[in-house]
Every structure is written in structure tokens, then in C-alpha cells.
Computed example of a mutant assay.
Amino acid sequence: MHFIFVIMMRCVLQTEQKKQAAADVLFHYSQFVMVCIGEGVRPTDLRLHLMKEVSGMATSLTKEPQQAAASPDSSEPSSSGTTK
């Protein structure tokens, strides 16, 4: 009976360690996100970065040149389907 108790306690300890590890990851990632927001990283880039990290793909968060984003005479369609 003592053996079963020891196995159960190990399972509980491992579960608690996994919960703590997940909480630590979320805490550190939330700090990372706040810094990225302060640096002006777009939310879509943050989501893509997180998806790549979770899947194990290489990723980096670098700012795109501001020239393309600031060009008012762009003839690309907007999200509503009309041209700018």
C-alpha cells in the first residue's frame, strides 16, 4: 500500500511542477509581449511569432521599414476591398 501512495504523490508532484512551469512561461511571455507593444510591434506579428515558437519554427520580431506603411498613395486594396 505504501508503494501506491508514493506513486500517487509523485504524480501529484509532477502535475504541480508542470502547472508551475506553464505559469512561469505565461508570466515571462506576457512581459515579452508588453515590451513588444512598447516597441511598436504589431499584434499580428506577435501572434505569428507565438505560433512559430509553439510549432518549433525559427522566428524573429523585427520592425518593417516605415516607408511602405507610411505611403499614402498606395494602390493596394484595403481590407474592405476598395483601393486606397
Results as ranks from 00 to 15, higher is better:
G56C: 08
H49N: 05
S78N: 09
D24S: 15
V12Q: 14
F27A: 08
A70I: 01
T83S: 08
Y29K: 04
S78P: 00
A58P: 10
V54L: 15
Q66T: 05
S79R: 11
K19R: 13
T62D: 09
Q31C: 09
P65G: 06
V12R: 14
P43I: 08
F3L: 09
A68H: 04
F27L: 05
L13Y: 06
I37Q: 08
M34I: 12
Q17K: 10
L50I: 14
L61Y: 05
D24P: 00
M51A: 15
T44W: 10
F27R: 14
A70L: 13
S55K: 11
R42D: 13
D24L: 12
R10A: 08
M9A: 11
L61D: 04
E16A: 14
M34S: 04
E39I: 07
L46F: 03
T59P: 00
K19Y: 09
G81L: 04
T83R: 10
H2F: 06
A70H: 05
M9T: 13
S71I: 11
E53I: 04
P77Q: 03
C36M: 15
P43C: 05
P72E: 00
A22W: 02
Q20F: 11
Q20N: 04
K52Q: 14
R10P: 06
S80I: 00
G56V: 03
L61P: 07
V6C: 01
M51N: 14
Y29G: 01
V25Q: 03
L46E: 02
M51S: 09
A69T: 13
D73C: 01
Q31W: 09
H2Q: 08
M9P: 02
E53N: 12
S79W: 06
M57G: 01
S74I: 00
S60L: 02
K84C: 03
P77Y: 06
